[in-house]
Design a binder for these strands. Structure first.
Lengths: 124, 124
DNA sequence: CGTATATTCAACCAAATGGTTGACCAAACT
DNA sequence: AGTTTGGTCAACCATTTGGTTGAATATACG
């Protein structure tokens, strides 16, 4: 039933983390923003420019991405710069990789994999 | 590695795919269900058993997971069996890998895994 | 047959989401 | 100083989401 492996991905902090990260990634506008930031850091106005929605809407998206830890924002002068923080994707990536190894035989390997990878990711 | 996947992120169908997959993963109940199905196929009632919400709510979650392609459901007799479909996670994994500028934790192992698994693409 | 079991459906509800607009504040440029 | 620029805030709106309940539909069992 519920074994030790599951305790890791059911842990409260981890689960809340994954909630916000996956929810942030579920919106195409936000994924597009992340893709833009992959090329370079950008000011909020420049992030908003290619989209047809209002600047305020983009600002909200950026807040969501920031809360998910997927980007960081630093204000220099009156300009707020947005920077990709790909580390936040690691927890989600690790979680997802567990489902790739679908064969029950590989479950032990996944368990070991989690124990190695998770401590480097989440220590809040 | 980045430019190869780049075309994928912007394609409309892919984007809609990612919408539904990431949205499905954003709910802790649904992730818990996936984790349960990792161990074995299960009937809807058995999936619902450890949760405190109603069976109907679980049934809805299973519909969402099915639409995202993350599970499949097969009705045998009056029992509907739920089966994990980890292939659906692959698209999301690949998308996330594009942001893999961050120091690869163990993503090279994941890449090798992808190369092994990708040709064995089974249809639903 | 009648009844229990497995699952979904339909109607409803509260809360969250993604968007708008206009007011607002702080920094920069004349 | 006054005005433009960069960005957020607040109030609103429509839609979606995640949950409930009770009725409905199969399928199995005795």
């Amino acid at each position: 039933m519920v074994d030790q492996t599951q305790a890791l991905w059911f842990s409260k902090s981890m689960s809340k983390d994954l909630d916000t990260v996956f929810a942030a990634l579920a919106d195409p506008t936000r994924r597009a923003i992340l893709a833009m930031l992959l090329e370079d850091d950008m000011a909020v106005t420049d992030v908003a420019e290619p989209f047809e929605i209002s600047l305020a809407a983009i600002s909200k998206h950026l807040v969501i991405l920031t809360k998910a830890g997927l980007i960081s924002q630093e204000k220099r002068g009156r300009v707020k710069w947005c920077k990709l923080e790909p580390d936040a994707l690691r927890a989600a990536s690790v979680w997802m990789q567990g489902f790739g190894q679908f064969e029950p035989v590989n479950l032990d390997a996944f368990e070991r994999f989690l124990e190695i990878e998770l401590p480097a990711t989440d220590d809040t």
